[in-house]
């Protein structure tokens, strides 16, 4: 590469990195008003009245904000904040970039007992453990893997490629409300919505079992996509056959 080409490439890299950093920093500012309900660390609020947003895939966050803005998804508390004059397309991108990067531990990180109380308090504030649900977790796991896993991921971590949200670590009462809303056709849907029809054969009792499983794995490392319960990694790269 000629020297000038190298400089151009370097300049582009620096500019794009700066633009990305700026986006996340701007996103922190955009997030300010959201924190009143969704919490300072996007951990959700009022014990699940407002959902956890931290760590959700960017594509899901963007889709959701657009659905609120376009009134495809009706939600009274979100109404004023999603107005186009309040939330531009760039704001949506920035805030989504900020929120997706927030990681919330499920255990208190190691911290020196001599650490200042404020430091311990701040670390504790980020720990999110949602209430466990009683039910048949094994049955719930099987139901989840059969009906939900390909979009939400086999360990329910969400999948950006499917615009599908993370479900593990989400408040079970919030998920129950969404389950009911999807079943009644109240949540953004339409014939082409990916959730359309998915829950038709899933009863509320089944869903309780799914919640029992989801809340039982919140502190476990996710299983790799493409693996199976037998522990055998499924082949994912067959060569393309030449006709």
């Amino acid at each position: 590469m000629a020297m000038s080409g190298t400089w151009t490439a370097l300049a582009c890299l620096v500019v794009s990195s700066a633009a990305w950093a700026q986006n996340v920093a701007d996103g922190r500012d955009v997030y300010g008003p959201c924190a009143a309900c969704h919490g300072q660390h996007a951990e959700g609020g009022k014990g699940g009245e407002y959902p956890r947003l931290a760590g959700q895939p960017v594509s899901f966050l963007l889709n959701s904000l657009k659905q609120f803005q376009d009134r495809q998804r009706l939600n009274l508390p979100m109404f004023p904040y999603a107005e186009p004059r309040e939330l531009s397309e760039q704001d949506m991108r920035d805030v989504a970039a900020f929120i997706t990067a927030i990681e919330l531990p499920t255990k208190m990180p190691p911290i020196s007992p001599d650490a200042p109380a404020l430091e311990r308090l701040l670390a504790a504030e980020r720990v999110l453990v949602v209430p466990k649900v009683k039910g048949d977790a094994e049955k719930g796991k099987a139901l989840f893997r059969k009906n939900c896993g390909s979009c939400h991921g086999r360990s329910a971590q969400g999948k950006a490629s499917r615009d599908a949200p993370r479900l593990v670590g989400q408040y079970p009462n919030y998920l129950e409300r969404q389950f009911a809303a999807f079943k009644k056709g109240e949540r953004a849907g339409g014939e082409d919505h990916p959730m359309n029809g998915v829950l038709d054969e899933v009863s509320p009792a089944d869903f309780t079992d799914v919640l029992a499983w989801l809340t039982s794995i919140q502190d476990q490392a996710p299983e790799p996509e493409g693996s199976t319960d037998a522990g055998v990694a499924a082949p994912v790269t067959p060569p393309e056959k030449k006709p």
């Binding site: 493409g226 499924a234 082949p235 994912v236 790269t237 067959p238 060569p239 393309e240 056959k241």
Partner: peptide
């Protein structure tokens, strides 16, 4: 071929 793709999935170019 189709069965394999449906069951195992793939990643290719």
């Amino acid at each position: 071929d189709w069965r394999k793709a449906i069951v195992d999935g793939f990643k290719r170019e």
